[in-house]
């Protein structure tokens, strides 16, 4: 059975199709959907191609960071000056996905909605505390990326919902790094990946934020604090202790549990060491953007309480 292809021209029509057809599936960049179709494992009755909907491919600056419409391509996130300026870690990580052809086609929304535990972009979105906008016939809601990956191949996207945008706060000052290790080919899916951001928790403490890919049934986030006077070894030790209980690899053709656990530790150690070394001794206390920034609020509150 071939699924019917719909090519609606406005958002309302998309949401009506998602609400009103038997077993709809959004067709974003289509790089994952086409493969599932070829493998004959897709049960959808209706494919809803969202490429013709105006506005979904907008990438714009916001007071607190940037906003990427769901159809912005991974390649644009990798190359656009706005992303380089506001969230260089994010640009770096998008640039490490698959190959340029897939990145030219795949969309930021389809990427996270795909929900695969090995995806690279979630590692950076987690440390940057991005927010996912979901739209449905019932309205709009927002889900923090840290609550988006709910289980193995499962996400917070509900029936009838469309990812419409990602809001990403400006990367806080500090140091950042990404490490991705593959076992079959340089360009293959990772067996372990880690995005790390080091920033000021307060005057004397640094926060190390870690996003892990491929090391558990979902992308995983954890943060740990270390004295600013600590060495890179101190930072690595603290990070490894924090990720240890969270690493829960799935054995497959790319390696067994022991192999992946080991590579996971290497990826975390490499990224933390690089990010720590990249962090200036005195992290300027003021955020880069003076405008109101509600994403950073919880962080500020935390700082005041101390």
């Amino acid at each position: 059975m071939t699924a019917a292809l719909h090519r609606p021209r406005d958002l309302g029509a998309v949401l009506d199709l998602l609400a009103g057809t038997d077993d709809p599936m959004v067709f974003g960049g289509g790089t994952a959907v086409q493969i599932l179709l070829k493998q004959g494992v897709l049960a959808a009755t209706d494919l809803v191609d969202i490429a013709a909907v105006p506005g979904l491919a907008d990438l714009v600056a916001t007071p607190g960071g940037l906003r990427a419409g769901t159809m912005v391509t991974l390649r644009r996130m990798e190359t656009d000056p706005l992303v380089h300026d506001r969230a260089p870690l994010l640009a770096q990580v998008y640039g490490r996905v698959a190959n340029p052809r897939v990145r030219n086609t795949a969309s930021v929304g389809g990427n996270i909605a795909h929900g695969d535990y090995r995806l690279d972009p979630p590692t950076a979105l987690l440390v940057l505390d991005a927010r996912v906008e979901l739209s449905s016939a019932a309205g709009v809601r927002h889900v923090p990326i840290r609550e988006f990956f709910t289980g193995f191949q499962e996400t917070a996207v509900g029936r009838g919902e469309l990812v419409t945008a990602l809001d990403v706060p400006t990367q806080p000052r500090g140091g950042a790094a990404f490490s991705k290790l593959s076992s079959l080919a340089a360009n293959d899916w990772p067996v372990a990946s880690a995005a790390v951001l080091v920033t000021a928790a307060d005057d004397v403490t640094r926060e190390i934020r870690i996003g892990l890919g491929a090391l558990a049934p979902t992308p995983v986030y954890v943060a740990v604090t270390v004295a600013a006077t600590g060495s890179d070894d101190d930072a690595v030790d603290a990070a490894l202790a924090a990720v240890e209980p969270l690493i829960d690899p799935l054995p497959d053709v790319r390696g067994g549990v022991g192999h992946k656990r080991r590579l996971g530790r290497v990826a975390v150690a490499d990224a933390v060491r690089a990010a720590w070394t990249d962090t200036p001794r005195d992290i300027p206390r003021e955020p880069r953007e003076e405008a109101s920034d509600d994403h950073r609020l919880p962080f500020r509150r935390l700082r005041r309480r101390r």
Partner: peptide
């Protein structure tokens, strides 16, 4: 490969490389 991983099917669309094995023509 037929799954976007080898590049034998590459074309440029408006200057951008695309794996035509994963691309629907109507797009």
């Amino acid at each position: 490969c037929g799954v976007g991983a080898c590049g034998a099917c590459t074309v440029l669309a408006d200057g951008h490389s695309v794996s035509s094995c994963l691309a629907r023509a109507v797009r």
